[in-house]
């Protein structure tokens, strides 16, 4: 899952995937901006069926690949239970 997220970010931003580590802060590092965030929300919905609520739009969920993957896992687990 992390690689899918990483590749999406890399393709969207013309960045080499290996430059995006699990812990790279994608917004602080200027890799993604607000359009990137919107495209990421779309991507999570299309790829993993995860719909992001307004209150979930926080750095703890979207700051880096690690956090995004954990967020997706939590959302999928919540739906499954």
């Amino acid at each position: 899952m992390k690689d899918k997220i990483r590749n999406f970010i890399a393709e969207t931003t013309f960045t080499e995937p290996e430059l995006i580590k699990d812990e790279t802060m994608i917004f602080d590092e200027g890799i993604f901006d607000s359009m990137g965030l919107l495209s990421l929300i779309n991507f999570l919905e299309e790829e993993f069926g995860v719909i992001t609520d307004d209150t979930e739009l926080i750095e703890e969920n979207f700051g880096n690949v690690e956090r995004i993957a954990a967020f997706v896992e939590r959302k999928k687990a919540a739906v499954a239970s």
Binding site: F27, S34, L37, I41, E59, G63
Partner: peptide, 8 residues
């Protein structure tokens, strides 16, 4: 306060 770029 969310430390993310703004969404509209």
């Amino acid at each position: 306060k969310r430390n993310l770029p703004p969404v509209h």
